[in-house]
Design a protein around this nucleic acid. Structure first.
Lengths: 244, 244
DNA sequence: CGAACACTCACGGCGCGTCAGAGTAC
DNA sequence: CGTACTCTGACGCGCCGTGAGTGTTC
């Protein structure tokens, strides 16, 4: 049976010697010792160390790792599930921070911090439950789970709508039944569908959100300002973008 | 000019008294004092505090916040950009951890940790640069930036391909030129396009990856095993799924 | 005997929470 | 005079990095 002293073992497992000392003191991985109290690690220790590192990679605190590795595997499974939720929450937080910075970077410089504060408070203040009740709220949560909102997605969606608005504004004087208008109405419906997934409950929620636009919080109103041009909305209505 | 003592000010700004003490000691926010050394905050202090909280929300360490708020705004902009990158890296790490847990949860129980380790090492070992060189690598990075890979996306893609494979396997005895086969071939092309974005360089990379399947690392091979059924691939080739 | 290892304390860093002990406002 | 504030100081947490001072192996 091959044995390793700390340094060799540390290199083998790609951790630091200090970390091994630490795990030893915490009782996570206690190797046997020589007469001079030198630590001696075996291949079995390597297995356990890999498990420790794996759980650590998932952000589980060392103290808990000890109990998990010595406890029943069902406890482990539970811990993993709860840890996954924690990580998902953390990730969503990070996404919000990233979004705040990206929004701030669009500003022409001076009031960068104000912009960040706006985005932060916006994210907290907006109470969507007013619009999405019961069924629709559940579906919205499900969609969020299947397809989490990222700042990159947000940027993509903003670009799509901005572009569409620009093109609609360019043909406001034409016939809403015309070929071009109909094509844009189709694109409009597609963008809405991209959000609702074709779900009528969610579509209803979107309509309620828009109908209540007078009561949006000021910062959200400002954010949405480019998309509230009534002439564009009316033109699209006449082109049938809101039907079905 | 209205003045507040700690508790009132803390409630006003939704932070704890202890935090205000802390910022004071760090020199981040030093209010004036009464004769008895009671802290007295003003509305101007509130502004600064909001900025502190905003930067903190972005994960910037308090020490750095002090310098940023007192320094030039250009330094601030730089710091924000670099912080955004750091957050994006962190988020990607979190996504990898989440993915590892989700993969592990699919296993029927016993070797959960082994599965996590596999996914971890897989993510590290796979050197895609072998397949995507120059132009294609840049485009791949760009796509990752515009549309970051999330575990949810991964699951969606896996579901799509699994479903498609199942349906193809069900009609292996039919005519590849038939209506059903053609429909499936179209779906196949769509799934590939969803990854390549229709870019020929990326498509070339995908083909190279597949062509080199004999040399994939074992864990990746195992992961991909359900999608290596040669009869399905051949049937799709005859149905024209690989053309154009 | 010297070089390269090994050992065991112990401090530090982040952002406060959480006492403890003592003074102040009304 | 009591009560509700306020102050300062110090420990703790999680995961080690980074010494310092000392013993062991070859």
């Amino acid at each position: 049976v091959k044995q390793y002293r700390v340094q060799a073992f540390a290199q083998l497992a790609a951790v630091t010697v200090r970390a091994l000392h630490h795990y030893d003191r915490l009782g996570l991985l206690k190797p046997c010792r020589t007469d001079a109290r030198y630590r001696l690690y075996t291949d079995r220790d390597l297995e356990r160390l890999e498990q420790i590192v794996a759980l650590q990679f998932l952000g589980i605190p060392l103290k808990q790792i000890g109990k998990l590795l010595d406890g029943r595997p069902t406890r482990l499974a539970e811990a993993l599930a709860s840890q996954r939720h924690a990580l998902e929450r953390k990730r969503d937080l990070l996404n919000r921070a990233i979004l705040a910075i990206r929004e701030a970077e669009k500003q022409p410089e001076p009031a960068v911090l104000k912009r960040i504060i706006e985005v932060m408070t916006m994210q907290n203040n907006m109470d969507w439950s007013k619009y999405y009740t019961g069924e629709a709220a559940a579906k919205l949560a499900e969609r969020q789970k299947q397809n989490p909102w990222t700042p990159e997605l947000q940027e993509q969606v903003t670009r799509d709508w901005t572009e569409l608005y620009r093109e609609v504004e360019a043909i406001l004087d034409q016939n809403p039944a015309g070929e071009k208008a109909q094509a844009l109405a189709a694109r409009w419906r597609k963008l809405v569908d991209a959000f609702t997934g074709g779900d009528p409950d969610l579509y209803d929620g979107v309509r309620k959100v828009y109908a209540d636009r007078a009561n949006w919080p000021p910062d959200f109103q400002q954010q949405m300002a480019p998309f509230r041009n009534p002439r564009v909305v009316d033109f699209m209505r006449r082109a049938g973008a809101f039907e079905r």
